[in-house]
């Protein structure tokens, strides 16, 4: 005999679980998304409003089917700062998104407010407004800005252009370029200035006329999951405004997509961002395998922001 428990009750309980499993499996059988749902979702999206994919696994199909998601600028956004409104696409089973999720990508002074939400079959489109939004005054990685960027490696100019990227003399043989492109950081796609750091040398990025708001915000991360699984030496970043150092931070593999914020006084002037690899090479698992020539790529984005005047 199995136990002293009444067999009928135990059997009934197990059959109930089976019926629940069957019902839940049936509910998802074959998927529910149809072309018509995507069309309706597209109609719900506001024109000229950035679209955020709130359910990550919807990303590939959303990029294929929705213009707002398929445009290159729609992917790899560093955060939501500088936006005054945005739409969110989610799967309905995920339920409504929470304001604190979006708040984490905004300035503490800004506040995301849900205006409305609409359904398109299993898709859910949310319309959000940002109270007290920030305004992007200037950006390091904007193509127009890159044109005036001076890239140096050990006091030598790295020739190039914003379209094809910049190649420093020491990196020419390896074919490494400093380029504004997509990069994978912490398993997410980011649009940033992708910078090869081959050795313990430093790289500086200089803008003669950089417009400042009341803060500079940015992110730095290490590209490539395999590189991050190594124990690379950390990278130190310094930021100088008109020749005066205003920030110095060190970032390691483990920091992921690490944000930084520097208070500034509004105006215009020179900006220099320098990156120093604190140790050359990498220690690859098993730890005794040290590779002195191993390269790594750093993904950097930096923007000047200020608070937008209230309407």
């Amino acid at each position: 005999m199995l136990t002293k428990l009444p067999h009928r009750m135990l059997l009934a309980a197990i059959m109930c679980v089976s019926v629940v499993e069957l019902a839940m499996t049936s509910a998802r059988y074959g998927g529910a998304l149809r072309t018509d749902h995507w069309r309706r979702a597209s109609e719900h999206l506001r024109a000229d409003t950035p679209l955020i994919i709130g359910t990550p696994w919807l990303g590939p199909e959303a990029r294929m089917r929705l213009d707002a998601a398929g445009a290159p600028e729609a992917s790899g956004r560093p955060d939501l700062r500088g936006l005054s409104s945005f739409d969110v696409l989610r799967h309905d089973r995920d339920g409504p998104s929470s304001a604190h999720v979006w708040q984490a990508s905004l300035s503490p002074r800004s506040k995301p407010v849900l205006l409305s939400a609409e359904r398109a079959g299993p898709l859910r489109v949310e319309h959000w407004r940002v109270e007290r939004p920030e305004r992007v005054v200037d950006t390091l990685i904007h193509p127009r800005a890159l044109r005036v960027l001076s890239t140096r490696d050990v006091e030598r100019t790295c020739p190039g252009n914003p379209t094809d990227g910049y190649t420093c003399p020491e990196q020419r043989r390896a074919g490494h370029r400093i380029k504004r492109q997509f990069a994978e950081v912490d398993y997410d796609a980011r649009r940033c200035l992708s910078i090869p750091l081959l050795s313990a040398a430093s790289l500086s990025f200089r803008r003669a006329e950089f417009q400042r708001g009341d803060r500079i915000v940015g992110h730095l991360g290490f590209e490539d999951f395999n590189a991050r699984l190594r124990n690379d030496g950390p990278v130190t970043m310094t930021v100088e405004i008109e020749g005066e150092m205003v920030a110095r931070s060190t970032f390691s593999n483990a920091d992921g997509w690490a944000g930084f914020e520097i208070p500034t006084t509004p105006g215009a002037g020179s900006l220099t961002v320098s990156l120093y690899a604190t140790a050359p090479g990498a220690w690859i698992s098993p730890p005794e395998r040290y590779q002195p020539g191993a390269s790594r790529r750093v993904c950097l984005e930096l923007r000047a922001l200020d608070e937008e005047a209230s309407p």
């Binding site: 998927g31 919807l58 590939p60 990029r63 290159p72 796609a189």
Partner: peptide, 22 residues
């Protein structure tokens, strides 16, 4: 992202899914 950079697009031409999951 390597494909995005090389092809200059983030838009797939076709996506295979299982219960809507790519």
């Amino acid at each position: 992202v390597r494909i995005w950079n090389d092809y200059g697009t983030t838009r797939p031409a076709a996506v295979l899914t299982v219960e809507d999951v790519p």
